[in-house]
């Protein structure tokens, strides 16, 4: 469904999104960006040997997932800027949730700012972000 700027209000929340961060999906991403052999992303055992709780989702995959969530909410929109803070690792094969809330609307530019988070199963924020999106 095409989203119209005039229908968006400050404080609106994007539908919560559960990304696919299975080992298979993360391996596909790692291959796509040239880090397919980096064990901390693609191999739970190797990641544990490095002191991590398991394989972790690459930060730039989290960023790409947040962009995909915005596109699902507003098909055809133009993401002009996306800032992400990799606060803590997201473990592969866990159940993460992506959330977004409108924090600014700019009618002259048909643009909105969205605060973004990815939380883990315990509800802890792992990735923070802000997007500027032209609707």
């Amino acid at each position: 469904m095409q989203r119209r700027f005039q229908d968006i209000e400050l404080g609106d929340e994007l539908p919560e999104y559960a990304p696919d961060i299975s080992l298979s999906a993360v391996r596909s991403f790692a291959e796509a960006v040239g880090v397919g052999r980096v064990g901390r992303f693609t191999d739970h055992e190797q990641a544990r040997r490095e002191g991590l709780p398991g394989a972790i989702v690459p930060g730039i995959m989290s960023q790409g997932i947040l962009a995909a969530m915005i596109h699902k909410w507003a098909p055809g929109c133009q993401i002009r800027k996306l800032d992400t803070v990799f606060r803590a690792p997201i473990v592969v094969d866990s159940q993460a949730r992506c959330r977004g809330v409108i924090t600014e609307t700019e009618p002259d530019a048909s643009s909105v700012d969205i605060d973004l988070t990815i939380v883990n199963e315990a509800g802890e924020t792992r990735v923070l972000g802000t997007a500027t999106v032209r609707i």
Binding site: A25, F29, G64, A68, G76
Partner: peptide
């Protein structure tokens, strides 16, 4: 791999086919 489903990012025959923003 990022979960994009819009044809402009997933269908090379789309007239506006392009890379995702990140």
């Amino acid at each position: 791999a990022c979960g994009e489903t819009e044809p402009r990012f997933t269908d090379p025959s789309h007239p506006d086919f392009q890379a995702p923003p990140t």
